[in-house]
Nucleic acid binder design. Structure first.
Length: 419
RNA sequence: GGAGGGGUGGGAGAGCGGCCGAAUCCGCCAGUUUGGAGAACUGGUGUACCUUCUUGGUACCGCGGGUUCAAAUCCCGCCCCCUCCGCCA
């Protein structure tokens, strides 16, 4: 959610910057409604002040045993005016908040302006492995070794619900465990959250109202299945005023992630590349505004640490304005190379949302004793999502003799060197 | 799911429909006192919005409606917590 006060002051400039994300953005209705709303507030509050004075007068007259009929009638008329104006005011406020809830965050100055393709590769780590044999893709490998069973997954739930079997299931669990403890040991507080959440929580993280179609929903209980732990963790300190010395607060959570992925399928996204349910270890930070971009850098480093420990070749990409999630001001993707597909795939997305989610969730901190509370900044990053990571391991670590070498750090957990 | 009890400011806790943004205690901050600390005493101590040079005003007692000139207080719906019962891990 953007700050309406800021829009009043710098509306034109903000509109211009938002248009780098979506050229159709137009703030004129909001600005017009807001101006009218301010006028209404002044009028209503004036009337309410009058009513408060008058009602107290009624009380005084009655205590003194005098007749208050005339005063009561007068105040009755004032109250009627108030309720008429109040309902108008409510309508305006709701409409403004709705329009505001659809607007994305203002991109950071360092973000390249333009379409998806304008992303900038910041750096890469490691090399594409030399494989002087016919490379198989992860589906072929999984098929051969019985690691995944898409047919039975589809029977039980539907298409794009992968089922991991045998060593595949073990490898999946090992990845989750390794990543969860890796971050927990590095000063992230471990969290095992509910996997379903109420609409309010989804609103705070910015998953609602705009992206409802992406989510699975249990109508009977009015609960949504989480598409990412970010949605849950953004709510962790809702309504709180944190003390300055508590920041930054860092969390790591494991959740399955459920996404409807309506209308996004392509032939190149078969297998584990895009699925309705997957596992992810997620990192989340609440920080002071002045340190949030430094915290974004260390967040990215923490994610890279996982890929380095697993011996993965990857690259780091700075997303362009038109590729940002609604709540983000700046996002860096980490992409691993899949030799079986001949291209890179995102396994992590690290974003600074500044005060966008904090404003929705009313999550604040007190900069110093006696000072006014301010909104914190929130950051999130996958650390990391498993399906593409597993695909990457299968494809990168395959050997000429048809085996798959288990990354060193997972060998003890799995109890095997090769799959 | 059924029955009962409860949700008030950082915490505890009071609150006849009007003088209640809310007693009191604790905590916290500042001052006095002290060699220093403690104790004691004095003062202060919520958030948001509107207006403004200072000021003033409005709203908030779980959430949303209603009754009334006036609601923390009365009525209705919902949510959450606690106790007991049932059911299930």
């Amino acid at each position: 959610m953007l700050d309406i006060h800021k829009l009043r002051k710098e509306g034109k400039e903000i509109e211009r910057r938002l248009q780098t994300r979506d050229s159709s953005i137009d703030l004129s209705e909001i600005m017009k409604l807001d101006a009218r709303r301010l006028e209404l507030i002044s009028k209503v509050e004036e009337l309410k002040a009058e009513r408060n004075r008058g009602s107290q007068e009624v009380g005084r007259l009655k205590r003194e045993g005098k007749d208050a009929t005339q005063q009561i009638e007068a105040m009755s008329a004032v109250s009627a005016q108030i309720s008429a104006l109040d309902s108008e005011l409510n309508d305006d406020t709701k409409r403004i908040n709705y329009l505001l809830s659809l607007l994305p965050n203002v991109p950071h100055a360092s973000v390249p302006v333009g379409k998806k393709e304008e992303k900038v590769i910041l750096r890469s780590h490691g090399e594409v492995p030399q494989q002087d044999f016919t490379v198989k893709n992860h589906l072929e490998i999984a098929e051969e070794k019985g690691l995944l069973d898409f047919t039975r997954g589809a029977m039980i739930a539907g298409a794009r619900f992968p089922m991991y079997v045998g060593a595949g299931a073990m490898l999946e669990m090992a990845l989750i465990q390794y990543m969860f403890f890796y971050h927990s040991r590095r000063s992230y507080t471990a969290v095992f959250p509910p996997f379903l959440a109420n609409p309010e929580s989804f609103y705070v993280s910015s998953q609602l109202p705009k992206f409802a179609d992406e989510d699975y929903y249990c109508e009977k209980d009015d609960l949504y299945l989480t598409p990412t732990a970010e949605t849950l963790l953004a709510n962790l300190h809702r309504g709180e005023i944190l003390s300055s010395s508590d920041l930054p607060k860092k969390y790591v959570a494991y959740t399955p992630c459920f996404r409807r992925e309506a209308g996004t399928y392509g032939e190149e996204e078969r297998g584990l590349i895009r699925v309705h349910q997957f596992n992810k270890v997620e990192l989340f930070k609440f920080t002071k505004p002045e340190t949030s971009y430094d915290e974004l850098e260390t967040l990215i480093e923490d994610v890279e640490g996982i890929l380095q420990a697993l011996g993965m070749h990857y690259r780091v990409a700075l997303l362009s304005t038109q590729d940002l999630a609604q709540q983000a001001t700046k996002t860096v993707d980490i992409e691993v190379y899949l030799p079986g597909q001949g291209r890179y795939y995102e396994v992590s997305s690290c974003s600074n949302c500044e005060d966008f989610q904090a404003r929705r969730g009313n999550t604040r901190y007190r900069p110093a004793e006696g000072e006014k509370p301010e909104y914190v900044h929130t950051l999130n990053g996958s650390g990391v999502a498993t399906p593409r990571l597993m695909a990457a391991i299968l494809e990168n670590n395959q050997t000429a003799d048809g085996r798959v070498r288990v990354p060193d750090v997972l060998q003890e957990i799995l109890g095997m060197e090769y799959l």
